[in-house]
Each structure stands twice: as C-alpha cells, then as structure tokens.
C-alpha cells in the first residue's frame, strides 16, 4: 500500500461558476440573501424613498441591528440572552445619570462597565451554575428593568448637555450619523472576531457540539463568558447611543428591541440551538427587517399589519431551513405512502 492511493468522496468544484456555486452552498446566509433580495425589490418598486433617504433606512437598521449583532455571539453557542433590552435601558440611564454629575466620557465608561458586570453575572449562572440561559437571562431581564427604574427614579433622565446629544444625532461622515458608523464598526469587529480570532472561531464548535468541543480541549466555559460579554457590552453601547441621541435616558426604552433583535438573527439564518449561523447573516437579517419596517411605515401600514408581515418573514426564514423541509417532506411521504397503500388495498 503506497501513499498514492487516494479515496475520493464527493466532488471537488472546478471552474469559476463551480467554485461560486459551492461557496454559495456552503454559506448559511443563502436564504437570508434571497429574502433580502425579495424585500429590496418590493421596496424599490413601492417605496423608492427607502433608498433615496438611505441614511434614514441605515439609521433604522442600526437601531434594530446593533443589539442583534451582540446577541448573535451568544446564539452561535446555543445560548439565549433575553436581558439585552434591559441592559440597554439600564446602561442608558447609568450613562446619562453619571454624565450629568461628571462628564460624558465617565458616563460612557460607567455604562460599559455595567454591561460587563451584567454579562459576567449572566455567564456565571449559565456556564458555572449551569442554569438554562433562557431562565437565567429572563431573571436578569426583570431585575435590570427594575434597576433602570430605581436609578432613574422612575422618570426619563434628561441629558443636561442637550447640545452634545443633538450634535450626536447629526451626520458625521457624509450623511452617516455616529450611530450608523458605530454599528458598522461593531459589525466588522465581531465579524473579525468570530472568523479570524481563535476564541471566536470556536463559538460555532461550542454551539454545534458542546461535548465534542470540550473533548477537543476547547475551554467551553470561557467561550460562554466571552459570548455573554460581547452581547452585554454591545447592548450597553446601544443603550448609550439611544440615550445620547435622544438627549434623555428612558427607563422603559428598548421595549421593542428584544423581539426585533431575535427576529433579525433568525431571519439571518441563525439557528437558535446554536452551531449554525453567522454575524453577516444577522446583518442581512437586520437590513431586511429595517428596510421592511421603513417601507411599511412610509406606507402608513398599521402596527398589527406590520407584525403580520414580520411574522410571515420569520416563518419563511425558519421553514425554508433545509432540515425543516426534510422533516416536512419525510412525514408527507409516509402519509402519501399510507394513502397509496390504503387505496391499493
């Protein structure tokens, strides 16, 4: 037996289109891209304003997408972080409260520190104590919401430096506001982290097969901590941006954020049980959702109808998953087989 003997299984793609097709098939974002294309087409035809006023659309995408980006880091590992919206509220309140007493920089640092502390507590319960992340972060959701009310004395905290807030909402680079720029910077940072940095690349392994990841010598608990910290800090950043841009921190803010960010992640092809998905997918999901929301808002479509649309798209994103389709196909074929057999009798 020599080394030349080679077993060839499967086909190796050749040629540009062959390679292109195989690259496309490898990505998990395929369905998200198709959905995005459909929505983009529909929007172009009906509401061109979505594109002509693209900075507004980008602002909406950044609003719902930022928290989703951080959340995806946790979802990739098969965990959930329900506390993101409350983290957003509490960090906004802390940022403004501290900034009013000292200065903005210290306010921002305090809010970021709060985000880190929250994620450490979340990760401690999930990774060390072993509580299901749904439950642990649900508890955190309520606790932080309450804390936001206590710190703010149950009323929105006005940012004293209103001019700073107004300036923060103005375009910084071309028509792009700081919010949009920060959103893209964070997207690039997390994308590089999960695709280039060893720890980030291992997120998929932790989510895909935790036992195997552990057996292969990956420090699973440390990865879970890292994921929650990303999620918490990004939520805190979103809270700071919201509070500064609105010139006030509202303890009830973020009420529509939680569902929107999960929707963006799911539409982007992320699998809630982990091990499947990508940050780019979430970006595409957020873009689809943002565009759709802006278009529907311009059309004056009422909220319940908007929700039907978003729900429909979520369902499409989920049921077009090949494994769901296989399951549907399997049970259908058994049923048909049965019917055919009964008829044959």
């Amino acid at each position: 037996m020599t080394n030349q003997t080679v077993i060839k299984v499967g086909s190796t793609a050749t040629g540009f289109w062959g390679k292109f097709r195989s690259v496309l098939a490898r990505r998990t974002e395929g369905r998200a891209v198709v959905l995005f294309a459909i929505i983009a087409t529909f929007v172009t035809v009906s509401q061109p304003l979505v594109f002509t006023a693209y900075q507004v659309t980008l602002g909406r995408i950044a609003l719902i997408g930022l928290v989703a980006l951080g959340l995806t880091a946790v979802i990739l590992m098969g965990e959930l972080d329900l506390s993101v919206a409350s983290t957003l509220a509490v960090s906004g309140v802390i940022a403004v409260t501290v900034a009013n007493q000292t200065n903005m920089a210290i306010g921002v640092l305090a809010a970021l520190a709060a985000g880190v502390v929250v994620s450490l507590i979340n990760a401690f319960f999930v990774a060390i104590v072993g509580i299901n992340s749904f439950i642990a972060t649900l508890g955190m959701l309520f606790a932080l919401r309450g804390m936001a009310f206590v710190i703010s004395d149950e009323a929105p905290v006005k940012l004293q430096n209103t001019d700073l807030g107004i300036a923060f909402g103005q375009p910084l680079l071309g028509p792009l506001t700081p919010r949009i720029l920060i959103f893209f910077l964070i997207f690039i940072a997390i994308q590089i982290f999960v695709s280039r940095v060893k720890a980030g690349r291992e997120f998929l392994a932790v989510g895909g097969n935790r036992q195997a990841a552990y057996d292969a010598g990956i420090p699973v608990k440390r990865r879970i901590f890292t994921g929650f910290i990303i999620s918490g800090v990004v939520a805190a950043i979103a809270g700071i941006i919201n509070a500064v841009e609105r010139t006030s921190a509202d303890p009830t803010s973020g009420s529509t954020v939680l569902l929107a960010s999960f929707a963006a992640a799911i539409i982007g092809g992320n699998y809630l049980k982990g091990g499947k998905g990508s940050i780019i997918g979430t970006l595409i999901g957020a873009a689809s959702l943002g565009m759709l929301q802006v278009a529907l808002t311009i059309s004056g479509v009422q909220i319940p109808i908007q929700e039907i649309f978003i729900g429909g798209i979520l369902l499409i994103a989920v049921i077009t998953d090949p494994s769901s389709l296989r399951a549907v196909w399997g049970s259908l074929s058994t049923t048909f087989q049965g019917i055919k057999n009964s008829l044959a009798k």
């Binding site: 006023a53 507004v56 609105r246 009420s255 808002t297």
Partner: peptide, 17 residues
Amino acid sequence: QYDGDKQASECEIAVAA
C-alpha cells in the same frame, strides 16, 4: 408602541419624506 427610540426613527423617516 411607546418606544421612544422607535418614534425617533419614525420621525427621521417622516422628515426624509
């Protein structure tokens, strides 16, 4: 839906329109 951030975004859309 009483979300201040969402209303701010809707305001941006309205202004752009």
